Amino acid sequence: MDPAVVVTAVMAAVGYLARLLYRWVKERAEVKKTELAQTGLSDRVRLLPAGSKLIERDGARSVEITVGSAGQSGSR
């Protein structure tokens, strides 16, 4: 087998694995970013009194949360 063919095949495999690793790291970073945003949102909502409304707009997403009404007693 010609060494040039082997080198070409190895380089193609390395390139493919590098692209795969890049996509995995990019997707993992997006997941982490979303987790942090949700944690921050949850922390802010926890601090609000009953009857409050939290509206957060960030680029492509919009979140509106109403924290229990003042008249609710927490019954199930």
Results as ranks from 00 to 15, higher is better:
residue 4 A to I: 14
residue 33 K to I: 02
residue 4 A to P: 05
residue 53 K to V: 15
residue 10 V to P: 04
residue 46 R to I: 01
residue 72 Q to A: 08
residue 12 A to V: 15
residue 19 R to E: 11
residue 3 P to H: 07
residue 39 T to S: 12
residue 74 G to D: 09
residue 41 L to V: 06
residue 34 T to R: 13
residue 10 V to D: 12
residue 68 G to E: 11
residue 27 E to L: 05
residue 22 Y to A: 08
residue 17 L to E: 14
residue 34 T to H: 07
residue 14 V to A: 14
residue 6 V to L: 10
residue 43 D to I: 02
residue 19 R to D: 06
residue 53 K to Y: 03
residue 63 V to F: 10
residue 41 L to K: 02
residue 36 L to N: 14
residue 7 V to T: 09
residue 8 T to F: 10
residue 64 E to K: 05
residue 71 G to I: 02
residue 72 Q to G: 03
residue 35 E to M: 10
residue 25 V to T: 08
residue 51 G to M: 00
residue 43 D to Y: 00
residue 58 D to W: 04
residue 61 R to C: 13
residue 44 R to T: 02
residue 75 S to T: 13
residue 72 Q to V: 06
residue 43 D to A: 03
residue 12 A to Y: 00
residue 47 L to C: 07
residue 36 L to D: 14
residue 2 D to E: 13
residue 10 V to E: 13
residue 41 L to Q: 02
residue 24 W to D: 15
residue 19 R to N: 10
residue 40 G to L: 08
residue 18 A to K: 08
residue 54 L to W: 00
residue 13 A to F: 10
residue 2 D to C: 03
residue 71 G to E: 15
residue 36 L to Y: 05
residue 56 E to T: 02
residue 12 A to S: 15
residue 47 L to Q: 15
residue 52 S to M: 05
residue 1 M to D: 07
residue 74 G to R: 05
residue 54 L to I: 01
residue 46 R to F: 04
residue 60 A to V: 09
residue 58 D to N: 09
residue 8 T to S: 15
residue 41 L to N: 05
residue 4 A to S: 08
residue 3 P to Q: 10
residue 45 V to P: 01
residue 38 Q to C: 09
residue 54 L to M: 13
residue 37 A to Y: 04
residue 68 G to H: 01
residue 21 L to F: 01
residue 64 E to Q: 05
residue 26 K to C: 06
residue 33 K to Y: 04
residue 39 T to D: 12
residue 32 K to L: 12
residue 69 S to E: 11
residue 32 K to F: 03
residue 8 T to M: 14
residue 44 R to C: 01
residue 76 R to N: 09
residue 34 T to K: 13
residue 63 V to P: 03
residue 23 R to E: 15
residue 9 A to L: 15
residue 38 Q to T: 11
residue 27 E to R: 11
residue 49 P to Q: 07
residue 20 L to F: 11
residue 74 G to Q: 02
residue 4 A to H: 12
residue 62 S to T: 15
residue 73 S to D: 14
residue 42 S to E: 14
residue 7 V to Y: 05
residue 26 K to Y: 09
residue 57 R to D: 15
residue 63 V to W: 09
residue 65 I to F: 02
residue 4 A to R: 11
residue 68 G to N: 08
residue 48 L to I: 02
residue 22 Y to C: 04
residue 32 K to C: 09
residue 35 E to T: 11
residue 38 Q to N: 11
residue 14 V to Q: 03
residue 51 G to K: 05
residue 70 A to L: 10
residue 27 E to P: 03
residue 9 A to M: 14
residue 34 T to C: 07
residue 66 T to L: 12
residue 71 G to H: 06
residue 52 S to W: 06
residue 6 V to R: 13
residue 25 V to I: 14
residue 20 L to W: 12
residue 75 S to Y: 02
residue 36 L to W: 04
residue 42 S to K: 04
residue 65 I to Y: 01
residue 23 R to L: 10
residue 76 R to I: 14
residue 38 Q to Y: 06
residue 6 V to A: 12
residue 38 Q to E: 09
residue 21 L to H: 14
residue 75 S to K: 11
residue 20 L to G: 06
residue 25 V to S: 00
residue 55 I to Y: 04
residue 29 A to Q: 13
residue 51 G to P: 06
residue 60 A to R: 03
residue 6 V to Y: 06
residue 54 L to Q: 04
residue 1 M to F: 10
residue 5 V to H: 00
residue 37 A to C: 05
residue 49 P to R: 06
residue 73 S to R: 07
residue 43 D to M: 11
residue 51 G to A: 01
